[in-house]
């Protein structure tokens, strides 16, 4: 078990945002966290990443309880790239902090950029890249550190329809190839069903887990299939829409 969340509560200024959250992720699992907006999805992600501490309960990564979790990769909304670094330098950021040699860094960065199909964009600054490309760099920046768990916070929310479909497809390809453990926050049910093995549905405030929906369909999926739509209908009904 890579991640174990046990009975986690979180309050902000006395107001309960998350209540009794308990779930776990197996290695190689691709999970989606969804729910109404303001339901504490991002808060849960930040709790797991150790950016904030829970009011009560435990979060256990790979058997360790410590708050500093260097083995977690976090992909922020819109990427949160360092604007003063080129794509390659952005990807190398985590490696440099880990004290990896320049030569090895160069090799790993190249590999990561190839993986997200950004070969040749090493020297571009974030402002010179499109939104989709920035997300790819952010993903590469996380992948290159080989984390045990990748967290993604509405990564494709700001992209246009075509780019989003394309990047979702690439994401699945990447997952099939590397089999990392991923937890992704999205408010887009279609995206959740398309990508993940498991959808964790949160209720509105205070956020509680309504249901964990397992999806066993083969990847890559076809959106027009009947089973696809059945799952979609189910999740939507859980959200009361």
């Amino acid at each position: 078990m890579v991640l174990m969340v046990e009975n986690v509560d979180k309050e902000f200024n006395g107001e309960c945002v998350l209540k009794g959250i308990t779930f776990s992720l197996e290695e190689g699992e691709f999970a989606c966290l969804t729910g109404p907006s303001g339901g504490g999805k991002t808060t849960l992600l930040r709790l797991i990443a150790g950016l904030i501490a829970p009011t009560s309960g435990h979060i256990c990564l790979d058997g360790s309880l410590s708050r500093a979790k260097p083995d977690i990769g976090y992909v922020f909304q819109e990427g949160a790239l360092f604007p003063w670094l080129t794509a390659a330098q952005n990807v190398a950021f985590g490696l440099k902090l880990r004290g990896i040699s320049a030569e090895e860094t160069r090799y790993l960065v190249q590999e990561a950029l190839d993986m997200v199909e950004l070969t040749g964009f090493d020297e571009y600054y974030p402002k010179e890249l499109s939104g989709g490309m920035r997300m790819r760099v952010a993903l590469a920046r996380v992948l290159v550190c080989k984390p045990k768990l990748i967290l993604m916070d509405e990564p494709f929310g700001s992209l246009d329809f075509r780019t989003r479909n394309k990047i979702q497809k690439d994401m699945v390809k990447l997952w099939l190839r590397l089999k990392p453990t991923i937890l992704i926050v999205t408010h887009n049910i279609d995206e959740a069903v398309y990508l993940s093995n498991k959808i964790i549905v949160l209720s509105s405030r205070p956020g509680q887990i309504v249901e964990q929906v397992s999806i066993t369909m083969d990847q890559p999926r076809i959106r027009t299939e009947k089973s696809f739509n059945l799952i979609r209908e189910h999740v939507l009904s859980l959200l009361g829409e």
């Binding site: 990443a49 950016l51 260097p70 977690i72 990769g73 976090y74 922020f76 909304q77 949160a80 790239l81 360092f82 950021f93 985590g94 902090l97 880990r98 920046r141 996380v142 550190c145």
Partner: peptide, 10 residues
């Protein structure tokens, strides 16, 4: 956010 990004990267 950028500071947090750096933190999560180590």
């Amino acid at each position: 956010i950028i500071i947090e990004a750096a933190q999560t990267l180590g």
